[in-house]
Each structure stands twice: as C-alpha cells, then as structure tokens.
Design a binder for these strands. Structure first.
Length: 415
RNA sequence: GUGAGUGUAGCCCAGUGGUCUAAGGCGCCAGGUUGUGGCCCUGGAGAUCGAGGGUUCAAAUCCCUCCACUCACCCCA
C-alpha cells in the first residue's frame, strides 16, 4: 500500500475549515496593510538558495530537496520563501514601483528533515516581504502586522521576542568580541558549540544546553555593540512598537539561522511553547538584494508556519467557522423519477443552489440517511406520486417539516 | 544523522504462549414500513495481528533483523 512520503500529509476535507479560516484571515490582513500576493515557482535554481540562505547553514547543507532535471539544470524545491520573492523583485524590475514593494505569499516549503511535532518535510508558510526601505517604522509595521494576525485568529498567550544583530559594518566587530569571550570558555562548551565557535559564532547564543546557556547569558550582547546607525534604528523601532502598544521582550540570544538577516530579528511563539513552537520568524535582510545582483536595497519580512498556527488553534480550542455543506439533497425513486431528478439537479445548480443528487437505486431510507449525514438543509423527494403531478416533496431536514411543492416553484421555495 | 517510544480492520482499542477460525466501540452497508433521516434494536462487510526470519508440539503474544509512525536532539515555520 502506498503512503504519503515521510513528513508529508494529506489535508482531508474535515481539516479544510482550519485552512480556509487561516487563509481568509491572511488575505484580509494583507489587504489591510497593503500587501499584494505573489506566487513563485515551487523550485528554483539551487544557487539562489545557496547564495541567500548561506552555504554553511543547515538548510543548504543538509535539508534541501535538490535534483537535476533532464536538461542538466540543478534545481531545488523551495526551502524558504524570501529568496524567491527577492529573485522575482529583481527579475521583474519591481524597483521601478513605489518603494517599499509589499508582497505576500502562501506556499509550500520543502525541507529534508526528520519530522516531529510541528515540523514536516512539506509544510506551508504565509510570508510577507517589504522591499526597498530601511525605515524602522516599516519594521514596526511589519511586526505589528504579524502580531495583529494572531489577534485576528483569536490565538492568545503569545510572546514577541526582539533583537538586533547589527549590519555588515558593526557585526564583524561584535563577532570578534563574542569570539574573544568564548575563547575563555571553550572547555565548557558542548561539542556542537565548539563547531559553532569556528563556523557560526552567532549561533552559540541559542544553544539549548543548560551549561551553554549560562555562558551565552553572560556573553557580550549584539545590541550593546551596534554602530550608531543600527543603534538608532533599533531604538526607534522599540519606540514605535511601544507607540503601537505591541508588547515585546528583548532577547539578546535571538539570532536566527539564516545568513541573510541584518539588524532587526524577531520571533513570535506561544508562552508555554515547547519544541518547534515558533510560529513566526522574521527580520531585516538589507544586503540580500544586493547579494543577488541588485542595487543595495534594504528589506524586511517574516514567515509563519500554517500547520503550527492550526496546531495552536486546536490546542487553544479556538472554534473556526464550518465550511458550507450541501443545501439540497435530491432523492428519487424509480427510473422515471431519476430522469426528472437529473434535470432538476442541473436546473437548481444553474440557479446557484448547491445540490447533491442521489446516485444508484437505493431505498428512500438510505437516501435520506445519506442526506442527513451530508448535512443537507433540505431533501427533495421525487417519486411516482410526485411525478404524476409535477411536484416534489420538500423536506426540511432540521425541522422534519415536509410539504408538496410544484417543480415550477423551485428554486424559489428553498430559502 | 543521533536517541527513546510505539506498531492488532478507515478510526479508537481489548488481548502478554494453547478455548484467537482475534473481542468491543465509532464509522460503513442492510433490515426493523408497501416511499422517509437523526435515537433505538438486529444483522452484515471489513484484520495476511507492520514485514521477514527464528524459538516452540503450539506465537498477535518470546527472540532477532528490517520497515513505518511518534516524540526528542540538530535546525527551523
């Protein structure tokens, strides 16, 4: 028997109400903040991700679904959403539009990882990118937008973590300070951290091991080593967030695992969240567009995992509106009635009524049982008696009231 | 890639060596009215007990290997 590949899943009809709910709130939110939808291909030139996400990151090193097509092109299933949007920004000359260009997407993301709670090999992300402006007011707006999203879907008990990791001017100096500090603690570090010290010192800060955490807590903070411009940017961002009454917690150990981040980084997670609980991750990437071959263009964005949002909606028992079901079920008895039913179903649908037409030659009992299971508001019954008089029995499935109506009264009689 | 746990019908699960030709519940199908749903009653279909090998007179039950799933680490949404 075939199964969905590891880390992938089918979203069955009974799950769809959650998806529809989240997607509708996303579309509403984006419209409110002036974001327009963009859809990019599911796969891209592998080099796009290697350049943007970073050669040394786990995503590029071990998590990409990479393949060679029959033309010999090296392609990769999108492991994150920002790089493709930046590529599209450059490819289509979007710098000729009013800046910042604000785009959003809802798209499947692919990463070859061991699946666990809240983590899948194919999952969906809603992401936003505001490209072409470095105003901290834009950072504040973007963060506010993510924050308000959760209010709109009724998710509560979340925390917003904030940090600034500086820019290409001030970060090298900070990294040296950090490495100097860690040099005196090398012996106490876990094996992973010893590697991080050489390969990616920033990541030393978010190691989960208690021993390493103690060292990280006392480590020099990036926010204390910002250049004047970054310092001012960070200060103004915090001021704007306060103006917006967005509660945030400074977390000097928040760094993020993709190489392209600069200055502002933030995450939103549940207060009591365990592993894999981050709902949103985002930040500035002021050098990425240039890195991909464009002119220097500051930008900021975030992405949220839709499966994780739905997971939290369920945990918090947030009700979501049910999807509309069938309005009318047409039952019929006998060959002649079936032909009348086929015509009637078509006529009602053309008039905009959602109809389910019984199939086969089941007993009326079985047909009504099905109508009930499908949640039909009405049942229309066509039998020999009705046929003779050009009528149908109209049964209200909630009240069990039943009456005879002329076919000519349809669909008017369905209210 | 590493570690731990779990694998019995579509779903939840009983069963820990012989009475298992595997129980129950949900769901599905049908009947209880010659044309009427939801509740109730009755019946039916549906399981190579994850796969392979081994131990034994006898294995869903014990052992080994593999596979899958889940959770955690790594890392991330």
């Amino acid at each position: 028997m075939y199964r969905a590949p590891r880390g992938t899943s089918d979203i069955l009809p009974e799950e769809q109400a959650y998806w529809r709910y989240v997607e509708e709130k996303v579309v509403e939110l984006c419209q409110l903040y002036g974001y327009e939808r963009i859809d990019s291909p599911a796969f891209e030139d592998t080099r796009l991700f290697a350049r943007s996400v970073g050669e040394g990151t786990d995503i590029v090193e071990k998590e990409m679904y990479t393949f060679t097509d029959k033309g010999g092109n090296l392609l990769t299933l999108r492991p994150e959403g920002t790089a493709p949007v930046c590529r599209a920004y450059l490819e289509h000359g979007l710098h000729n539009r009013p800046q910042p260009v604000k785009l959003y997407y809802i798209a499947p993301i692919f990463r070859y990882e061991r699946p666990q709670a809240g983590r899948y090999r194919q999952h969906y992300q809603f992401g936003c990118e505001a490209i072409g402006d470095d105003d901290p007011a834009l950072d504040a707006e973007v963060i506010e937008m993510a924050w308000r999203f959760f209010q709109s879907v009724n998710l509560h008990h979340l925390t917003l973590q904030l940090n600034s990791i500086g820019c290409k001017r001030c970060r090298p100096g900070y990294l040296n300070t950090l490495k100097d500090y860690y040099a005196s603690h090398t012996e106490e570090l876990c094996a992973d951290c010893k590697v991080r010290l050489v390969r990616n010192p920033l990541r030393l800060l978010d190691c989960k091991r208690p021993a390493c955490q103690r060292i990280a807590d006392a480590a020099p903070r990036s926010s204390d080593h910002l250049c004047p411009e970054c310092q001012s940017h960070f200060t103004r961002l915090q001021r704007y967030l306060s103006l917006l009454e967005i509660p945030f917690a400074l977390n000097h150990r928040l760094v993020r695992g993709l190489d392209y981040y600069t200055r502002t980084v933030f995450e939103i997670q549940p207060e009591n969240g365990g592993a894999q609980s981050t709902l949103v991750g985002g930040g500035r990437y002021d050098d990425l567009i240039e890195e991909l071959g464009g002119r220097p263009t500051p930008a900021i964005g975030y992405a949220m995992g839709i499966e994780r949002i739905i997971l939290n909606l369920k945990e918090q028992h947030i009700p979501v509106p049910p999807l509309p079901g069938a309005q009318v079920f047409i039952a019929h008895l006998g060959d002649e009635a079936r032909e009348e039913a086929i015509k009637l179903a078509s006529r009602l649908r053309r008039a905009g009524t959602a109809v389910i037409l019984a199939t086969g030659s089941k007993s009326l009992k079985a047909q009504l049982r099905q109508a009930n299971r499908l949640g039909a508001r009405y049942a229309l019954i066509l039998g020999e008696d009705e046929l003779k008089s050009g009528t149908a029995s109209l049964r209200d499935m909630t009240t069990s009231q039943q009456s005879l109506i002329h076919l000519s009264e349809l669909p008017g009689a369905l209210k």
